[in-house]
Design a protein around this nucleic acid. Sequence first.
RNA 1: GGGAGCAUAGCUCAGUUGGUUUAGAGCAUCUCGUUUACACCGAGAGGGUCCGCGGUUCGAACCCGUGUGCUCCCA
Length: 868
Amino acid sequence: MELSKNYIPGEVETKWYAHWIKNGYFHSTPNEKKAYTVVIPPPNVTGVLHMGHCLNNTIQDILVRRARMQGFNPCWVPGTDHASIATEAKVVAMLRERGISKSSLTRDEFLAYAWEWKEKYGGIILQQLRKMGCSLDWERTSFTMDPDYYETVIKVFVDLHKKGKIYRGKRMINWDVRAKTALSDEEVIHKEVNGKMYYIRYRLDVANEEYITIATVRPETIFGDTAICVHPEDARYKHLVGKFAFIPMTNKLIPIITDDYIEMDFGTGALKVTPAHDMNDFQLGQKHNLEVVDIMNDDGTISDASPMYVGQDRIDVRKLIVPDLEAAGNLVKIEDYVHQVGFSERTEAIVEPRLSLQWWVDMKQLATPALEAVMSDEIKFHPAKFKNVYRHWMDNIKDWCISRQLWWGHRIPAWYDAEGNVYVETSLEKVYETYPETKGKNLHQDSDCLDTWFSSWLWPIEVFKGMSNPGNEEINYYYPTSTLVTAPEIIFFWVARMIMAGEEYMGKIPFKDVYFTGIVRDKQGKKMSKSLGNSPDLLGLIDQFGADAVRFGIMIASPAGNDLLFDESTIEQGKNFNNKLWNAAKLLKMWETRIEDTAVPEDAGFAMDWFQAKLSNTQNTVDELLKEFRLSEALKVIYSLIWDDYCSWYLEWIKPGFEQPMNKKVYENTIEFYDALLQLLHPFMPFITEEIHHALKTQTEDICVKLYAPKTSVNEQVLKAGELLQNVISTLRDARNKNQIKPKDAIELFIQTAHNAPYQTIQNILAKQINAATIQFTTTAIGSSIVVALEKDKFYLVADQAIDTVSLKENLLKDLAHQQGFLVSVDKKLSNVKFVQNAKPEVLAIEQKKKADALARIQTIEESLSQL
RNA sequence: GGGAGCAUAGCUCAGUUGGUUUAGAGCAUCUCGUUUACACCGAGAGGGUCCGCGGUUCGAACCCGUGUGCUCCCA
């Protein structure tokens, strides 16, 4: 079979993916082999593939494919997350476009639209993962709202409620005014914003006209003020404590109180306390029994609890109130002020602190074993620096607000009677059964649903039905999973909570290793995101360069534990690598046509021994690197082994002369070497490796399921000899170059050395690589030649052209200066008495050898110089 | 405000307990070369105050202190 001129990825990729699926290579069932389990971080059901997914899933595929080739039984479970708030926002937007408002629909009508949307757009991303070559077990595709999964989430809610770990409480929460729902702390993004600090004076309720000035960034909330607070030690205000002040533009009086929470040198040292609209003020209010005046509606407009601006948005009111305050004589000054503002992760609305009745998970007890599992390295984090981050969060853990005022999700299994009593059970029937007092009563279910993460924290368990069918064969076999690959930004949202759920419901950790990928950034270092529009079109890139090239590009640029600065040029490098692989295969196929079964030439024997050693050595290195999850380094090592060692050195060394026959034994070995290289590369670039594997010869198995050969020992001596040969070739090529000898012009080479033998074995290779017509050994200097010194040996190149003695001398002098400088530094050490006394013996020996080598080299160079 | 991390060639990064030839790789740059696998290529070269300062040590890119700059997390 002859290979096409260029490698064309498109068809090849489609062909092999279909072939792998047809053969069921990615489907796993429990067997006698050891399991290697990975659960995909379920992408949002509405999601499309972006660079983050690409990086994340390429890494998982590399781990899974390698495990498969190492003889594990790998199982990589795909699936999607219902993503309640993100999906609901999209469905609402879609309905709005059709002229339908959510409020005009019943819950069931809305959910019908949502499911319709899910069926239409959900799972696009799963198709895209196939294009990337991901070896997922598609028969196990899961969804966080599958019937069994749904039931499990409800069961867990009821169970935690029974254990007293879920409760209902009125607390300050983060309110998304656009989605009209509560958010967890983790869903709020704090950003620095250029704002203003407004200085507003409140007139005191005293006989003479006196004022107290406060500083605030939120003047629109003054009608919710219920106190002014100063520091008890603040001399400026001591005389005012206990008196009252009027809220500007009203005749409402609020007290002046003290608390040492106040920072005297911040603003004016006087704080307006608005318990309904600020987290800290709320706590202050509780402490001092202050009234709570909520002046905001759930959509962010001012409520009728306010005397003015009712029905207008709070952001607009901030602009309106300033001139009004000024007109009333209450505005003192305005300063520019940079401060942090919270935004909703999903809707980007400015988040309002709001007092609200919500459902909470008590996290304290759940956190204890989950923290211990990571600190003791039962679960290993890669890179380990995330252990610190994790501990810090766990030590300061707060209760988790899990109710969301949304319809798309798992509906909270709580029912209320007319008196407001709450009954938690898995269904209405169960409520009547468990709570006999409810008999005959009319109950209505809580209309809220649960935070998305309240279902995803069960993912590694429930994808194997570990909760809905406890103790089944699969959960016993696949759980705990092996490695979790995820983004560091969801360490609290997801990773921490999965560990908690694992400990709580399985009594076991959910995974043994967690690999945190970097964040994908663009060339300028900006995080890639849809909103910035700096995310490249991934499918376009795959079409243009092929999936293998994209996988290569993203992996080579992704050092372990660091962010990835994405640049299309690395994908181009991947494409070039494809081309290289293809051309090496073409060369082998060409040799196949002129095989001759004769004795193996000595130099080819050497080349094969050397490459075998190099291959074994690198296989060990790759093994070590992958054990430490240093994927990008492993890929670099493989890349260099193929491009430099195999193609540039080895293939050139065994290459027969023009139209000469190819030795059969050498050919067969060379094919086997190439196949081993492809196997090593396969997890990173699955498609082209499978294609070439089959192109090399008729194969009995696919590379994707071919097991790695057992490790072999490395012949260090041959490795060194090869290195020497490479050194000699490079040095002599450099000498040719510097003396402007044309590549076509052959030279005569004379070698002056104490040991002829090592050079004799390789002289044919040497002659070929430096274009030497003859190679001879000499014991004396050769006149009118180019002299090159390497180690203790000297090389004389005799060429037809005049020798540029000036530049030759220059080079030798440069080398001499370097060696002498080096000698000085070594001498300095060796003549230091303290060094000789304190250094370890082996260090001393090394320094002595350095000195001897340097002296020998200096002598060689000086001899060469004297001959010029 | 609290915490974590980073700073090595133009760029992206290695550099394992301090000593392994006065710091390595890939990409980019420059020179030469169209020799039948590959110009999506080959051969070669240049390029570094290891962020600044101070300290520990016989010896520091590496350890300690400090300053500067950047990034992330939490409030």
